[in-house]
Design a protein around this nucleic acid. Structure first.
Lengths: 186, 186
DNA sequence: TACGCCATGTAACGGGTTACATGATTCA
DNA sequence: TGAATCATGTAACCCGTTACATGGCGTA
């Protein structure tokens, strides 16, 4: 699926692997991420499959850049994927919930400490989402005004982050209170 | 990490790989899942590492059962993992958000259709969580009354499912309304 | 008659992470 | 002086999925 994140961004404009990592971290870090090593390998595969092309731009004083450009076949592949509806719930994995599920044996105070650490982290992340789209998003639109209509969708994904973190914070507060009241050690 | 789900359940009582899949699907399906093939392979590895032992119970008319039992080393490993606090947010991946991020090009109606499908799915899942812990959870406690105190933690993970689906439903309703109002096609 | 449950496994493959390898420029 | 940024890539490994292989019993 990283494939489609890369095609999606290359559909905005040609870029290097390094650039793509920045775009992904800033724009989709919320719901998708990737390491540079994986991005480089995936780009190579996309080129083999004819979905992107690349050319090297020599630079002085810093490494040469390999710039990737989406092809017509790439655009077609991206469109086909976008058009294909998701008709099932995507089962996720959540290490914190897994730990909590089995956590009784470590004792009341240890559980509460862990949940309070999580509460702090999620409150901070909630603040980040409440600030709206990051300044980099507005810069991108300044440089490419034709992307203006995209911001509705970018902001929708940000808004999900906000609602998700609100739910998480509320749940942590509730769960801490419940464990304080109902957990009877030994 | 499946390792710890398996150790966690084997800490309740000895079981086969097949049993473990049922426990995982019923109890932690919400936030953790695994295929049988992976469960069998992971159990084999746990046995090599001395965290579980196994013995075969012959049966008539159906395949023999290989029953796994957690060892002292296994309990120690589980406890160490449970005690280790999660001090960072876990970055997740969400295919629906990835699709939505790039969805402008497929057009207003296609986007709305996809979001409405999702809304239906999440409303149904929300109903499931609102029904409380599944009947199987109560059966387990009837068979093993010493597990009663665990139900506080089981229900906490269920409650997260409920709040998560509420957030998802609210977000989908909001996003559908926003796209209806603000998406200008062409 | 066919499907689902019980029950265990192997093999090939794909996606992703970590570690390794290199090296100049810029800023605090 | 040291850390961050720019910039690209390979290799080993781990986790997980899909497909393959087997086969009796109970139920609709």
């Amino acid at each position: 699926m990283l494939k489609y994140a890369l095609l999606g961004f290359l559909n905005y404009k040609p870029m290097t692997g390094y650039d793509l990592e920045n775009y992904i971290n800033i724009s989709t870090g919320n719901f998708w991420h990737a390491r540079l090593s994986q991005i480089y390998m995936t780009l190579k595969k996309l080129e083999q499959d004819g979905l992107v092309t690349s050319h090297v731009e020599p630079q002085e004083g810093r490494p040469d850049r390999r710039v990737y450009t989406i092809t017509e076949a790439g655009r077609a592949d991206l469109s086909a994927w976008l058009a294909e509806p998701l008709v099932e719930l995507v089962p996720g994995k959540d290490p914190l919930l897994l730990k909590l599920f089995f956590a009784r044996s470590i004792g009341k105070q240890a559980v509460l400490t862990q949940l309070r650490v999580q509460l702090e982290l999620h409150r901070k992340q909630l603040e980040v989402y409440r600030r709206g789209l990051p300044p980099e998003a507005h810069e991108i639109v300044r440089e490419q005004p034709e992307l203006k209509p995209e911001t509705l969708f970018w902001d929708a994904t940000r808004r999900f982050g906000e609602l998700y973190e609100e739910a998480r914070v509320q749940w942590l507060e509730e769960t801490i209170a419940r464990i304080e009241a109902e957990f009877n050690d030994i």
